[in-house]
Design a protein around this nucleic acid. Structure first.
Lengths: 216, 216
DNA sequence: GGGATACACTACCGGCGGGTAGCACCCGAG
DNA sequence: CTCGGGTGCTACCCGCCGGTAGTGTATCCC
């Protein structure tokens, strides 16, 4: 990224690709930071380039357009959320244990990738329709996955709830919302927040006792 | 708003103000609709004017700037949310009853003013700092109000929870999030959703039995 | 040393859109 | 019929920014 001795003409063939990937990643880092702080339309490509010590055409050698950059920020993060859900659901154990894992892991994604999550939800309307559709398909899978887990848990007698779909949306919202208030230097760290969220989710699901909270 | 016979030079002095207020309201209606559908920067003032059958300078006789328009969309809606919370908390009854009322009324605000809520959370970064600060002060009051109700309920032995502040944020998120998925023609109407949300909130609060759900 | 290649820069374009100056119209009053 | 006030329009400006064409330069290979 510096203007010093170009390290690009490397001997190893694989190295070249790694360097390309690294540059791409650095651009994404700065882009998501600025989009998070100033908004998508409030950030110019020159801003991003400037922050990197580089110029605008440099960005265009790695991304086709500004909206392409936006999609590259949003999509992988939503994919990570879905992956966390699927992995948790397919892991062994009771529905209660799997729900706990799902919530903890999903919370971690939301908090660790907070800027990406925030940018996605705020700038949804700036995404190209095709990219948005792709992401929305992932989100739908996430909701269905969580909903199915709740239904299964209810069928197994572990959970007690009226409406699995609605409860899934409520849980998703409760956690996603953290992007609006979480501060990395806050009172609770990521893991602690994951635990608390899991407890709240289990109560929402009407999970059976093992909680030390219930008076009954 | 039509170009027909100007009804503005009315005889009654108060009537003039009413007409001004009406025009203002119509502009806000179209603006929030378009901002909701296309985003703030994706909507031009000409778009709004066109939809109203009017021209851009007309809007400028009622609002100082585009961001002023945005603030006028967001602020009153957030104020309504806070009012709902305060009214509920100050109403009579047990903490459980008051929490239920708070959730039902807040849910109603979120769903009925869905476009306004959505525009606020998405376009936060487009608001002028002063307007944003004002709104954030209201949001903080809302969170504190809800949090205090939870603490009081816990002290009274009605609720069982670890962390009132976090639970308040979680509840706020669960409900606010509805702006992302609610469809006015969906399976459940506004009042039904309010009821379900209230049930979920009470479970999150670890409210004592009266719920028919708990197996214990 | 000379040619080829890859890379990132300088310099530019073009349109879009927020915001404004000044005008045309309609009306009631005298 | 004219005057004055109020209202909304036509026509314009201008800065910003996404995107691109063409150039300079360093490295590598022969």
């Amino acid at each position: 990224m510096t203007n010093g001795p170009p390290i690009t003409n490397a001997t190893t063939p694989g190295m070249r690709d790694e360097i390309l990937a690294y540059k791409r990643e650095r651009i994404l880092q700065e882009a998501v930071t600025l989009f998070y702080e100033r908004g998508f339309t409030g950030t110019t490509l020159d801003d991003i380039a400037h922050e990197l010590g580089v110029t605008k055409p440099f960005i265009y050698t790695h991304f086709r357009s500004k909206t392409d950059l936006l999609a590259a920020i949003c999509l992988p993060t939503i994919q990570m959320s879905l992956d966390a859900a699927i992995t948790a659901v397919e892991s062994g154990g009771s529905a209660t244990e799997r729900l706990r894992k799902l919530i903890v892991d999903f919370t971690r994604v939301v908090l660790v990738r907070q800027p990406n999550i925030a940018v996605f939800f705020r700038e949804e309307k700036s995404l190209e329709p095709a990219a948005l559709a792709e992401i929305n398909a992932l989100r739908q899978k996430f909701d269905r996955t969580l909903s199915r887990l709740l239904k299964d848990g209810a069928a197994a007698g572990e959970f007690h709830l009226h409406d699995a779909s609605l409860t899934a949306l409520a849980m998703g919202g409760m956690i996603s919302w953290a992007y609006t208030w979480h501060r990395p230097d806050g009172r609770l760290n990521v893991e602690e927040l994951g635990e608390r969220m899991a407890e709240l989710a289990l109560q929402m699901a009407g999970a059976s006792p093992p909680s030390t909270l219930h008076a009954c």
